[in-house]
Design a protein around this nucleic acid. Sequence first.
RNA 1: GGGAGAUUAGCUCAGCUGGUUCAGAGCAUCUGCCUUACAAGCAGAGGGUCACUGGUUCGAACCCAGUAUCUCCCA
Length: 893
Amino acid sequence: MSIAKTYTPADVEAKWYQRWQEQGFFKAKANPRKQPYSVVIPPPNVTGVLHMGHMLNNTIQDVLVRRARMQGKEACWVPGTDHASIATEAKVVALLKEKGIDKKDLTREQFLAHAWEWKEKYGGIILEQLKKLGASCDWDRTRFTMEPELTDAVLRVFVDLHQKGLIYRGIRMVNWDPQGGTALSDEEVIPKDTMAKMYHLRYEVVSDSLPVVSEQNNTDNQQLTTNNYLTVATSRPETIMADVAVAVNPNDPRYTHLHGAKVRIPLLGREIPVILDEYVSIDFGTGALKVTPAHDLNDYELGLKHNLPVIDILNNDGTLNEKAVLYVGQDRFAARRTIVKDLEAAGHLDKVEEYASIVQTSERTGAVIEPRLSLQWFLKMEHLAKPALAAVESDEIRLHPPKFKNMYRVWMENVRDWCISRQLWWGQRIPAYYLPDGTFVVALSADEALLLAREQSGNAELQLTDLRQDEDVLDTWFSSWLWPISVFDGFKDPDNADVNYFYPTNDLVTAPEILFFWVARMIMAGLEYRKQVPFRNVYLTGIVRDAQGRKMSKSLGNSPDPLDLIAQYGADGVRAGMLFSSPAGNDLMFDIKLVEQGRNFTNKLWNAFRLTQGWEVDATLPFANEKAVAWFAAKLQAAQQELDEHFDKFRMSDALMTVYKLVWDDFCSFYLEMVKPAYQAPIDAETLRHTTGFLETLLKLLHPFMPFITEEIWHELTQRGPKEYVCVAAWPKAQPAAGAADLIARMAKALDIVAGVRNVRNQKGLGPNKPLTLAAKTDDAALLQDYDGVIRKLAALTEITVVDAAPAASVGFVSGGAEFFVPLEGQIDLGAEKERLEKEVGYARGFRDSVLKKLSNEKFVANAKPDVLERERQKLADAEAKITALEQGLAAL
RNA sequence: GGGAGAUUAGCUCAGCUGGUUCAGAGCAUCUGCCUUACAAGCAGAGGGUCACUGGUUCGAACCCAGUAUCUCCCA
């Protein structure tokens, strides 16, 4: 049988994924005899396609889940998607537009029919893509946030929270997209740097409003108010009609004389007060700020503080309404151009300045966002936030890395009420029903609402047609925050076996950007509805950036297509590549080289397997590799222990690197080279048995990271039973063996000697196989005896002898306090050799002196811990020995 | 403007309560090798004033203060 020289993932990945599914390995069900391990996927947007962020995030989840499965836990990874109101609705609107259909011409029902059709057709592509990555989700459990059961959960929770008095309607400043006709969340708003104009407008000071001029402000330092004008800087002159005050800083000496005064809005003539507030920054603009509560968030808050009225001059579509009095019906930008001309004509325009500013635009429509007051539904947060904060503070839930705890705390301590309504159709419609008198009732269904409405109004004649359901839908997060409970049907049936068994889930893997929007809210919902946190650990991944540190985005075109990557490098290579450089919470600087490294690693493993497969066994041969086998067994134990520690700390990169080095360096470069028989020579049965066993253990340790290749080799290695897959093999347990540390240390010394010889070969330009001999001047002859075979094989030596003095014409090196010589007749440059030794001895003396200095410091000797002192004395002794050896070597030259 | 975190090799990062081998890894670099498992490889080597300035200490990458730069969060 000949095995391909390079591993080709495309040949095997689909096969194994299918087999795993056929075997039902990913299916999980409540099983009291096993320990549960559950993870809910952060539901990707149903309209989405796989991007690099998903790759990273889901690779990490899969590693955790696969390891748990191998550890014998009932591993349950619940997949699914969310309905992403705004993104999906925007996509459907765009699609309809292409077909020549305008959303405005459709009824709600018609539009939703289109949306569902679209969802059925394209939704879930992303889940299929996850399978290519190897994600071991229990696909039978796939959920969607807008499916009937989950919608039911959302409505129940809304009704419940309303009954508890936690949901209310209120006015709030929202990001209004005049083109899309909806409010947007902060995440859907993109700030754009632009050059804007700052218009300096003269507001006439109402003369009889001025207080008596006092001694201190009668000087003429008030240029800004010359001729009884107060100059205000604004970038939005069209909003002056909505002004309700002009604010100045009370500490601004330029305006002291205006305290308590009134000014007149240009063109309009309405009088408004000058108010004082330290919020106004003295250096910005003219230091006088027009206050327009309806059209600016900060102004709104200023207005609340100073009890000012609110004048909203804008319609939903961005045109001016009749409250503006002037320019009614004009678009906000058209009105701006007109008013600037009129202001100038009337002599109110002092000057125009350019300045760099940031304009908020809609992610979906590109329109400039209008801060706008509107009536929205809110959820009170204080009651929910307190226990959710405590859960993280007490480490009941651990954030990885823990630096996010600070952020979490700050946010939870300053939490604001959650605006849960969205002016969209795609989503769960708010179950509030308005009565003809304008009051409303909240109920799970229209029928229930009618009963309530009759009761509330005292009007038994009320009919369904008299009720009008709220037009808005709920924020998508209002579905997602229930996810860890709702996927196990914990609202419909709070005591079902699944939810009781799998909730709380164990680990959550997600991005720090949604720590507040999602993670915190899930904690709140979990505590509110199940009195238990939804998960124990939250692993926060970083953002995947390109090598230049730019965020990967479609518009930049700097993101590789994940599926192309998988096709090219194999899912295992890509998974490893993603993990090589992704410490928790740090951004991942993605570089194709990382994926290459991952691919190379799969190939390395493949070739190790190839080597062992090529061996012929000779049963008559004695066991020839006891030292190598004992050493690697010890090494394996140590690595397993280290690996488990990394996993426990959620250090995924380090975990992978541990196995990577174990396989590449220890197993391939050292172990296999030690036991490898000469070309076409047979191997003894005992060595082969151990080697195959080691390889199996390595496959198990690697499986969570590289599921496909490990399964392939697992089956190629030997005949397997029908259920015998590495996917469900028992995770190797680290069993600390007595004397393991000593075995490892002794072999390290032997390998250091090997490296010394190889270095000599390199320096002298000798080939790797030129037969050499080695002479050693050492106190530890036992080491050379014990590891004679290993050293001779790896260093290609014919003989190792112990000597009392350096042989003539040889190159020396020092290893572990002993001196070694490679006799090289006729190839020695005495001068160079002397120079090298002198350099080395000088270095050693310097080191000895620094240790000596430490030890002769009385305070050090008095204060240092005994073990530290002991170490220093040992260092001194070693250094002395080395110096002596080197000096003798020099003398011998 | 307020808050949090960071700054260690060319790059990405480790470095646990200050003291093991005068600071580690992977990648990259350099040198030599197509040595019948692997050139997607093998062997070896070089590379750091631990951002800067002070302080505490017998001893500082680590603790403290200040400075600089960067990132994120909130406004």
